[in-house]
């Protein structure tokens, strides 16, 4: 994320069980680099007949009223395929945070490994965010990673969220897991030595 805390308007995607095939359909997984997936984010929900000239007007990413760095989705976000391309696409499309009441495990790891913060909130709090945005599309939400807190600005309602201490340190300092694992290579070799 690079930032300790920030405020942003949100994009509300009030759909449950959003699977990674919706986030980025398989036919767009053919690149050999990590860049450029954002334009195909939610491709089949965004366009009719796979045609960029035919945007579906009722899909939230096509509604000019909604924008921001925070994507808010209903429960079980990111289920299905392990494709990290889903996290790359969301990040590439300009989001730094996804809020949901429930995340699929593999997606959560993939998001964290790409400095995309998954914020898990209660069903009740999620409902409050959707309601706030419904009242005012410009309603802002504040994310504070340091304090592990999320706040709906217009109503002042807030909730704490969890993240493990190791991952929090990684996100706040821009470290990644590979740096860490490479740093303990002697321990890995020592383990292998005693392992058959």
């Amino acid at each position: 994320m690079g930032t300790v805390g920030f405020r942003s308007t949100v994009v509300p995607l009030n759909i449950e069980n959003v699977d990674t095939d919706q986030i980025i359909p398989a036919r767009f997984l053919k690149a050999t680099s990590r860049e450029g997936f954002g334009k195909n984010l939610f491709r089949d929900w965004r366009y009719s007949n796979d045609d960029e000239k035919q945007p579906k007007p009722d899909f939230v990413l096509n509604e000019p009223a909604y924008s921001g760095r925070i994507l808010v989705a209903a429960k079980n976000f990111g289920c299905g395929s392990s494709r990290e391309h889903a996290a790359w696409a969301i990040k590439d499309a300009g989001f730094d945070v996804v809020v949901s009441s429930f995340f699929a495990d593999i997606f959560k790891n993939n998001a964290l490994n790409n400095f995309l913060l998954p914020v898990q909130v209660s069903e009740d709090f999620l409902k409050k965010i959707f309601e706030a945005v419904q009242r005012d599309a410009k309603a802002e939400v504040e994310i504070n990673l340091e304090e592990q807190n999320i706040k709906i600005i217009p109503t002042g309602e807030q909730e704490a969220f969890e993240i493990n201490a190791y991952k929090k340190t990684c996100l706040l300092n821009g470290y990644d897991d590979i740096d860490y694992l490479l740093s303990i290579k002697p321990e890995i070799e020592e383990f292998e030595h005693h392992y058959e």
Binding site: R34, S82, H85, I106, N109, N110, N113, N114, D177, L181
Partner: peptide, 8 residues
């Protein structure tokens, strides 16, 4: 696992 983990 995801691709970052494949790299790990």
């Amino acid at each position: 696992i995801g691709t970052s983990e494949v790299e790990m």
